[in-house]
Design a binder for these strands. Structure first.
Length: 601
DNA sequence: CTAGGGTTAG
């Protein structure tokens, strides 16, 4: 009887097994506790301990608290706190359990303040203490405390502990200090997969995919086995870089090692294929999945949206509803994004309103951003201005920036100036804004304004992000910057590019020098500036280094420039190569002299 | 009582 498992409380009503409580020994109570999940059950058990005078049994109380902190809610943590407070001299194990609960229930500050109490009790933190607390520091953005914990871990000789070390790395990475994370990582003699995962994830999330991938190669060289988490971060790095070949290799690895049973891995694969320009790859992963959660559907919806397939986005959304999967805020971002990129204003507003009214999802700043883009793209510039002006939350400079680029594409200089004033009040350090407005002024021939803006930009110390395009050849990602002369093949590459431009001109290409805003530059100089744009460098690098007939895939960090866009169209027909260019906001598939965006972007 | 995670407007 004493060893009999406690009955499964969940299925029975309390009255049925209250007699059982009375005949049970504490040991079976102990073994049943971890299986009890609901607060109601736990309270029943506590009531039982009072009846049997076991309410002060430390072992039982510890188990009770552990049950509360396993999958904690605010209520179960309050209850755990009550139990905890009644214990006269809690040990570090009990504190650890509380830390776990608080950090898992999104109450990081409570974890941190409880830790101070533990220190006041003269308790020494152990290897179980640090992971929960470091996580709490990340959530609470308490980086000072995080660093103090790091020092403490060093003092206690726990900084290289296999459980502590990854969380230390993660704490720095989560504080936007990947270099700090790298320093922790460098100090480990024999990093395990988990430590590699932490640092790779840190780089991937800080948009430093190259470093992430080189650590991934290091991991492989050390004969460590990548797991599902490794694969997630590596795939997101591939997606950032547009490294399709590596992504495909990872996909093979995933299949070979049975990692495709993880829904998250498949979702990351969908995203990777979509962002590397292979919508077909994304679709085939999606269709291979036996189980699809909200995130998987969202990733597929966003994939269609990115590739400008608005109709597929809508039908996917309907199919998702038929499959009884609830949409989330990201699903709606995909929907709104698709509407704005396909010019479906009414449809967009319908989804926007249904979000909160039907699905109870409160629109966030990114949803508002889509709506501004939706109106702006459609040329409803004043409506967009009014929309931002009447928002229930304070607009970010990004929202105004969205409208600024709509003003630019619709050539509305007057409104652009007003929008620029709004931006400058919030953030005057963004070089791109000055460039957009100054280009608009230049097109209107207002050279004094161009000059004033340039001076203002220099005065504010605003810098424009340099254009950068990358292309993957033989598993190596090559990056090119506008006017790049430092790449190791630059001379051969420049000669090839000069040759290419000559050929293009023979079939009617006229460099659009009006895009180079510089009153003092000669036309010839402008043409050279235009010729060495990063996207042209990357495309001609691809032409030189990949077999004839294969698709060229280029990724650019900014919007594609108009001249490069028309050049790419001509190249696709002249050399009979498909070019897929991913710019900062969408895909351009160049084929037979045409682009999938229909020249509207 | 231990860690690491994918999808997010412009």
């Amino acid at each position: 009887m004493a060893t009999a498992p406690f009955p499964p409380v969940i299925q029975q009503s309390p009255s049925q097994h209250s007699s059982y409580y009375n005949t049970t020994y504490p040991s079976s109570l102990l073994s049943c506790l971890p299986k009890c999940t609901s607060l109601k059950e736990l309270k029943q058990i506590q009531a039982f301990t009072i009846k049997t005078h076991l309410q002060n049994d430390l072992q039982i109380l510890t188990k009770l608290i552990n049950s509360c902190t396993q999958n904690p809610t605010t209520a179960s943590m309050d209850y755990a706190h009550q139990l905890f407070e009644a214990i006269p001299q809690p040990d570090i194990v009990l504190f650890n359990s509380m830390f776990r609960g608080y950090s898992r229930s999104n109450a990081p500050l409570k974890a941190i303040s409880l830790f101070i109490k533990a220190l006041n009790y003269n308790l020494l933190p152990d290897d179980y203490t640090f992971p929960s607390l470091l996580k709490a520091c990340v959530v609470a953005k308490a980086f000072q405390q995080g660093k103090q914990l790091h020092c403490l871990a060093i003092k206690l000789g726990l900084n290289e502990n296999p459980y502590v070390c990854p969380t230390l790395i993660n704490m720095y990475a989560g504080s936007n200090d990947v270099d700090g994370a790298q320093r922790v990582f460098d100090e480990i003699l024999e990093p395990c997969v988990v430590s590699y995962n932490a640092i790779i994830t840190g780089y991937a999330r800080s948009s430093r995919p190259n470093e992430a991938l080189s650590l991934f190669r290091q991991l492989q060289a050390r004969k460590l086995k990548p797991n599902d988490v490794t694969v997630l971060s590596v795939l997101s790095s591939c997606a950032l870089l547009g490294a399709l070949d590596l992504g495909k290799w990872i996909h093979e690895y995933v299949k070979k090692n049975g990692l495709d049973k993880y829904v998250k891995v498949n979702t990351a694969l969908i995203d990777m294929y979509a962002k590397c320009g292979s919508l077909d790859g994304a679709i085939s992963v999606f269709e291979s999945m036996s189980l699809r959660d909200t995130q998987a559907w969202s990733a597929m919806i966003v994939a269609y949206a990115m590739h400008g397939q608005g109709q597929d986005v809508m039908s996917m959304f309907e199919e998702m509803a038929r499959a009884n999967v609830q949409p989330d805020e990201i699903t709606f971002l995909g929907l709104l994004y698709a509407c704005s990129h396909t010019g479906l204003v009414d449809e967009g507003f319908r989804y926007f309103y249904s979000m909160s009214e039907v699905y109870g999802i409160i629109p966030g700043i990114k949803h508002y951003g889509c709506m501004v883009d939706l109106l702006g793209r459609a040329g409803l510039l004043h409506e967009a201005y009014k929309f931002i002006d009447e928002l229930p939350i304070k607009p970010t400079p990004i929202l105004w920036r969205t409208l600024l680029s709509s003003c630019s594409s619709h050539g509305n200089l007057e409104l652009a100036k007003q929008v620029m004033n709004q931006i400058l009040e919030l953030d005057d350090s963004h070089g791109g804004d000055y460039v957009i407005l100054s280009n608009l002024c230049a097109r209107a021939g207002k050279w004094e304004d161009v000059d004033t803006l340039r001076k203002l930009m220099i005065h504010k110390g605003a810098v424009k992000i340099p254009g950068c395009s990358s292309i993957e050849v033989d598993n190596v990602v090559h990056e090119f910057f506008s006017g790049d002369g430092v790449h190791y093949v630059s001379t051969a590459l420049h000669r090839a590019l000069d040759e290419l431009v000559k050929e293009l001109k023979s079939v009617g290409y006229v460099p659009d020098t009006s895009l180079v805003v510089h009153p003092d530059m000669e036309d010839e100089e402008k043409e050279i500036t235009l010729r060495y744009h990063s996207e042209k460098l990357a495309i001609s690098f691809g032409l030189l280094n990949t077999p004839p007939g294969t698709t060229i895939r280029v990724v650019k960090n900014l919007r594609v420039c108009g001249d490069c866009h028309s050049a790419a169209k001509l190249i696709s027909s002249l050399i009979d190569r498909e070019i897929i260019l991913r710019d900062v906001q969408r895909f351009h598939h160049f084929k037979d002299g045409k682009c999938s965006c229909g020249d509207y972007w």
